[in-house]
Design a protein around this nucleic acid. Sequence first.
DNA 1: CCTCCACCGGAACTTACGGAGT
DNA 2: ACTCCGTAAGTTCCGGTGGAGG
Length: 410
Amino acid sequence: MYVVSKRIEDILKRVLVSNIFKDREKLRPDYVPDELPHREKEVEKLAEKLAPAVKGERPSNIFIYGLTGTGKTAVTRYVLKMIKDMAGRLQLEFKLMDSYVNCKVNNTNYSVLVSLCESLNEYVPFTGLSIPELFRRFMRALERTPSLMFVVLDEVDALVKQSGDDLLYKLTRINPDLKRSQVAIVGITNDLKFTESLDPRVKSTLAEEEMVFTPYTSEELEDILRQRARIAFKDGVLSDEVIPLCATLAAREHGDARRALDLLRVAGEIAEREGSLKVLETHVRRAQVEIERDRVIEVLRTMPLHGKLTLISTYLLEKAKVEPTTGEVYSIYKGLCRKLGIEPLTHRRISDLINELDMIGLATAKVVNRGRYGVTKLIKLSVPEGAIFEGLKEDERLTSFLGDVGRAAR
DNA sequence: CCTCCACCGGAACTTACGGAGT
DNA sequence: ACTCCGTAAGTTCCGGTGGAGG
């Protein structure tokens, strides 16, 4: 008892007085720093485009493209914050507001509208109403006070893929129906050829202006990391090679700043956990493995049963040195279902589940044409099997034969 | 040069669910 | 109590595909 409470005390102490961190929150992806290194031009350009807002003129709708972690969201937040600060000092006779919606999280028309309403302090039920009714309430809330509202739709491609562009169409044409207020849309996407999938009518109004964010280079990432490290870490705890390594690793992933910051933060956490006084190269290496591993386990935890079975089927085929094609996976999958005494899904559905595995990044699925022998998908797992087993073992529906699978693996 | 495999993937439809409005 | 609504997951149906092998 004494030993345990002593250890808990140690843990608490370590959290309270860190050897490593000054302020860990500064490394979180949603933290917007006072300056955005190597995005000065973008900040300026976006500010120019949005500036008319402070005069009460509706800015053009803007579309921002760029891969993940290139600063799109940060720049947008940053500029909007400055504009709102400015507006606050000017005492305008209208309200300047913004609503940020992440469409990857809210990827249905309904939930996007719900969060738009909520940002106007308009309560709406999370289900039950019709879309037109929801839209009406949004407009009513908007008209309560004269206002200019920025609607930021982050990862808007996810919304369109899921639910079509109806809502986008309606939003782009809302202004003529508003008497006292105005809406400007900022669309953000990391799908570079997203607008091709849009209705031309939507495209022309939504993307009146366009901006493209290019990936950070390794050197630029280093600057970003240095700036954050200064405020997040205690002085002198980072050994020299840490920041360049994080930058290089992230640059390999198309210059993803979020990735770089994650690496740095987790490396710090690992160092802290083992009571090291410095963050070393080895901590970064281990951070890389840990991030990936945690991601896999988390994804697996929330994956539906049939998705898991599809994954296991692929795994078994790879172990048996059979090329996993859709057909092969499906027949193994059916066998697993029989063992579990559950109804298998259709071939068509499994084909989709395989695509989902690809999308999540647990596997890659490539369509191959084998001429005489038809067209199929060639599936390949892209994560270590250890992490897969780790993620699956909690599922008690699988425990009965997961042991067998494990043994077969050895 | 044609055929034909073994699937791909779009689209419409079904079912179940949670809840609103009346 | 009843009807209406949107979403998620899954099924059914079906036209399309492109190159190995005849």
